[in-house]
Design a protein around this nucleic acid. Structure first.
Length: 501
RNA sequence: GGCGCCGUACCCAAGUGGUAAGGGAGCAGUCUGCAAAACUGCGAUGCGGCGGUUCGAACCCGCCCGGCGCCUCCA
């Protein structure tokens, strides 16, 4: 039984969708005016994994993730660069897909844009005016928070506690300082759409109410986003949606914690943020390996808590994955006749599945679920020493692929083990360090690429022959030479050797 | 000022009343010509501190210390 921590109630609750075996979820995506940072990556990955786990658990999932493509920041960015808002949003929507694709985040079922839902936004705004929950001033329309008694339910705030105006100038035209814009009249040069209140554009929150209702209905199951959206964004969404429909709107509210740098929130004002593409560009590993490292790292902490980003954390994730991938792509790929331990394999896989499911059912406990993979790794390594047939090895490999797919992990056929596989003249620079000092274009070449597989096999054959002659000096020379090119030799008990790089 | 979160071994990190998962690093052992990998073992009598409730608390309550977030745009 899946249980989810619901921000609305502050408790873990059994997940009971409105329609059995169907999950409808809406996640606030990004405002597209800049490249995504690692914090966006966490949010996107967390909800991608939630979506995948629901599917894995047999739910039919409708997953909507929006792009907010009309906004003050977009207008500002367009003006700065002397281009149209459309050019800005098109560029960063493409960048979003590129970056998230490299992270293995699947596109949502529907990815609506605010600009394509003006009719819905205007209709919803009109409904709120009709119901007396919104009012117009000049060409603007504001939500009237005083008319909505439940305001503050999600963020656990009372209107009188909000001290509105303490940090911003209060607009004197508003009835209550916390009233927020549903519709903004257009200033010259700004993108604008016709409405009953004149030319203008939507306020920040209304587009998510309109798009979620359009694509999922007035009531649906899960609404998610980053912690920082609880107030005011989601609070306002609830006020608008429940106010307009008189219905419950989303039932389970899920919020992910922040990525931090040295225990501080990553933010542009602190200058301590890292974009996803920077991290990929500066990584010493291949793109797919880097994606795998990032996924493992981002899932190694429960989604609700803070997560500190650091080179050490990335490095630890890499070391952990080395052990898993050594099993997956090296040891399980070796042919074997001995099948002594084959009959134990099914039990170990079932144990892993159960542990994985138990962890994930408990509010998507990804660290617990990763521990389940570790358990299977240990079990299978033990079986390998007893004897696991080629067929059983394939089944074991497939188990990792199948269960791991919920996290997008363990799908790779190759792995980079050796950190020295980059050419020696290019100093290895940790990601954060390299980003902060702005190291120039790294013209690194995979040194190990200078040896083809067959060349390596030739060297290994030569080394085995040397070992047979007890010429350990020569054998060690060959091993050292290969090692300097990032190729690791491991001798097996039967006298043969395996290699990896 | 209001609301909220966090503090578990060297590092990361699960665990919300029943006697501390997992990973990384380290050390030791098995194996090995050596090495690597793998496996085995070691590692918090204690979960920021002090009280309290309880047969029993990392988990509940109170106070204190330390760190952070939101209340303005923010994943």
């Amino acid at each position: 039984m899946l249980r989810i921590y619901n921000t609305l109630t502050g408790k873990k609750e059994p997940f009971e969708p409105l329609v059995p075996k169907t999950a409808r979820m809406y996640v606030c995506g990004v405002t597209v005016y800049d490249y995504c940072h690692i914090g966006h990556a966490r949010s996107a990955l967390v909800f991608d994994v939630i979506r995948r786990y629901l599917e894995h658990s047999g739910y039919c999932v409708a997953f909507v993730k929006n792009f907010t493509d009309v906004d003050d920041k977009i207008i500002k960015r367009a003006n700065e660069q002397g281009v149209s808002c459309d050019q800005i949003t098109a560029k960063f929507i493409q960048a979003y897909h590129d970056d998230m694709g490299r992270l293995g985040v699947r596109p949502a079922s529907i990815e609506p844009k605010a600009t394509e839902h003006m009719a819905d936004i205007i209709e919803l705004t009109g409904r709120l005016i009709t119901k007396g929950l919104a009012y117009q001033v000049d060409g603007d329309v504001y939500f009237d928070v005083a008319q909505y008694p439940e305001y503050g339910r999600l963020s656990k705030r009372r209107l009188e506690d909000l001290q509105a105006g303490a940090r911003v100038d209060v607009d004197e035209r508003k009835r209550h300082p916390m009233d927020f814009a549903l519709w903004k009249s257009a200033k010259p040069g700004e993108p604008a759409w016709p409405s009953p209140w004149g030319q203008g554009r939507p306020g920040w929150h209304i587009e998510c109410s309109a798009m979620s209702i359009r694509h999922l209905g007035e009531m649906f199951d899960i609404h998610g986003g980053g912690m920082d959206l609880i107030f005011p964004h989601h609070e306002n969404e609830i006020a608008q949606s429940c106010g307009a429909t008189g219905k419950e709107f989303a039932r389970y509210w899920i919020h992910n914690g922040f990525v931090q740098i040295n225990k501080e929130k990553m933010s542009k004002s602190l200058g301590n943020f890292f974009t996803i593409r920077e991290i990929f560009e500066k990584s010493e590993w291949s793109e797919e390996v880097t994606g795998e490292i990032l996924r493992y790292f981002l899932l190694s902490t429960h989604y609700h808590g803070p997560l500190d980003f650091s080179d050490q954390a990335l490095s630890e994730a890499k070391n952990t994955l080395n052990g898993l991938y050594d099993l997956l792509v090296t040891r399980l790929a070796e042919p074997e006749q001995n099948s002594t331990a084959d009959r134990e394999l099914d039990g170990a896989i079932e144990k892993c599945k159960l542990a994985f499911q138990t962890a994930m059912d408990d509010d998507f406990n990804t660290p617990g679920a990763l521990a389940a993979f570790q358990g299977l790794k240990t079990d299978i390594n033990k079986m390998l020493s007893q004897g696991l047939s080629t067929e059983a090895r394939q089944i074991a490999r497939q188990a990792f692929r199948t269960i791991g797919n919920v996290f997008g992990l363990f799908q790779l056929d190759r792995w980079q083990f050796n950190p020295t596989s980059r050419i020696a003249t290019s100093e290895k620079v940790p990601v954060l360090e390299s980003l902060s000092v702005g190291v120039g274009e790294s013209a690194t070449v995979l040194k190990s690429e200078r040896f083809s597989d067959t060349e390596i096999e030739t060297r290994i054959a030569e080394r085995i022959e040397a070992k047979r002659r007890k010429d350990f000096k020569r054998a060690d020379e060959i091993r050292a030479e290969l090692h300097s090119f990032g190729i690791i030799i491991e001798d097996k008990p039967d006298g043969t050797s395996r290699w990896k790089r």
